[in-house]
C-alpha cells in the first residue's frame, strides 16, 4: 500500500538550559501512514505527538532521522499545497471576521478571487458559520473558532490533513458534526493524521492507531485487530460438575448463574471446551468473543510501558 507519510528514525531532542542536558522529545520514531486512512496518533501529555507533527510540517527540525510527506521532504513548498493543519486550540487573527480569515488563507494558496468567494462561502456553510461570517473572530466562542480552524484546514482541498485535537472544547452536537466530517474526508479519499485524547472518537473513526509514550512508539496497528480480545466467553447449561472443574482450570474467570455456567477461556481453548461440554450432555447457549476498548489498550500500553 502506498504511504502518505513515511517516518524513519525520527528523533528530536531539546537542550535544557536549566539542567544542561538534552531532553529527548521524540525517540527514533519509525512509522508509515497509508494513503486514504484515518490514522490515530495517541499518547499521554508530553508524549511527543505535537513535536512530531511540527517536524512533519517543517515548523521545527529533527535532530536526526528523516520523514517524507506525500513523497516530499517536510516543509517543501509543493507539499504545503497538498496538506493542511489544524493546531490544538487554534488562534487566528482576531481582527478579521470568519469570512476574512478564510479569504486570507485562500489567498495564501493563490486561489483566484471569484473561486475564493465561492469556496469560502461553501466552507462557512459546511462548518455552520454562515450566519456569523461577518462577526470578528474575537467575538467567536471556542467551538466557533474550532469550526473556523477546520474550515481553514479544508480551504485547499488537501490530500492529507493533520488534525490536532479537533474536537477539543466542542459541545456534543459540534463534536458529532466534526466526527462525521472526518469520516467524510476519508470517504473522499483523503488521509487524516488525527492526534487526539478523545479515545472514543479515535475508536469510532480511525483505521489504524499508534501509541506514543515519552517519545517512543509503543504500539502501532489496525484498530480492529487491537480491539479484538484474546479471550472468549462461553455460556452453557446442564454442565456436569467434573467438566466445569476441568474447564475452570483453563479459565481466567468462571462462575455459575442459576445453574448455568459462564467461563472465559483463551481463544485456542474454545473448540476443546465446547466439545467437552457438548459430548457430556451440556448445552452451549452462547459463545461471545471478548472485546476490549481503546481506553483499555491505551492505559495498558502506557502503564506497562511495553513496546509491541
Amino acid at each position: 500500500m502506498e504511504n502518505a507519510i513515511e517516518i524513519r528514525d525520527l528523533t528530536k531532542s531539546f537542550h535544557s538550559v536549566l539542567t544542561g542536558e538534552d531532553v529527548i522529545a521524540v525517540d527514533h520514531l519509525t512509522l508509515d501512514i497509508h494513503r486514504g486512512e484515518i490514522f490515530g496518533f495517541l499518547g499521554p501529555n508530553g508524549a511527543g505527538k505535537t513535536t512530531t507533527i511540527k517536524m512533519l510540517l517543517g515548523l521545527i527540525f529533527p535532530t536526526s532521522g528523516t520523514a517524507s510527506i506525500l513523497g516530499y521532504p517536510p516543509g517543501d513548498i509543493e507539499v504545503k499545497r497538498k496538506i493542511s493543519y489544524l493546531p490544538e486550540s487554534p488562534y487566528f487573527y482576531e481582527h478579521l471576521s470568519g469570512y476574512e480569515v478564510l479569504d486570507f488563507y485562500a489567498t495564501l494558496f493563490g486561489i483566484p478571487a471569484a473561486e475564493r468567494k465561492k469556496k469560502v462561502d461553501e466552507l462557512l456553510d459546511l462548518v455552520g458559520l454562515s450566519d456569523n461570517k461577518h462577526k470578528r473572530l474575537r467575538h467567536y466562542s471556542k467551538g466557533m473558532l474550532q469550526r473556523i480552524g477546520l474550515a481553514q484546514a479544508l480551504i485547499n482541498d488537501p490530500d492529507l490533513l493533520f488534525l490536532d485535537e479537533p474536537t477539543s472544547g466542542l459541545d456534543p452536537i459540534a463534536h458529532l458534526d466534526i466526527r462525521d466530517m472526518i469520516l467524510r474526508l476519508r470517504d473522499e479519499g483523503r488521509t487524516v493524521f488525527l492526534s487526539s485524547h478523545q479515545l472514543s472518537d479515535v475508536e469510532m473513526v480511525c483505521d489504524r492507531v499508534s501509541i506514543l509514550d515519552r517519545g517512543k512508539l509503543m504500539r502501532v496497528g489496525s484498530l480492529k485487530e487491537m480491539l479484538a480480545g484474546k479471550s472468549v466467553e462461553i455460556r452453557a447449561e446442564r454442565v456436569r460438575d467434573d467438566i466445569f472443574e476441568k474447564v475452570k482450570a483453563h479459565s481466567s474467570d468462571a462462575f455459575t448463574v442459576d445453574g448455568a455456567i459462564r467461563v472465559r477461556v483463551e481463544q485456542s481453548f474454545v473448540n476443546e471446551t465446547v466439545q467437552m461440554i457438548m459430548q457430556t450432555g451440556g448445552e452451549i447457549t452462547a459463545v461471545i468473543p471478548g472485546k476490549r476498548t481503546l481506553e483499555d489498550i491505551f492505559i495498558e500500553t502506557v502503564r506497562e510501558g511495553t513496546v509491541s
Partner: peptide
C-alpha cells in the same frame, strides 16, 4: 506566541 504562525507557515508560504 499566539500560535497563528502554525497555520501560516504550514500553508505554501516561504
Amino acid at each position: 506566541e499566539q500560535r497563528t504562525i502554525y497555520t501560516i507557515l504550514s500553508k505554501p508560504v516561504k
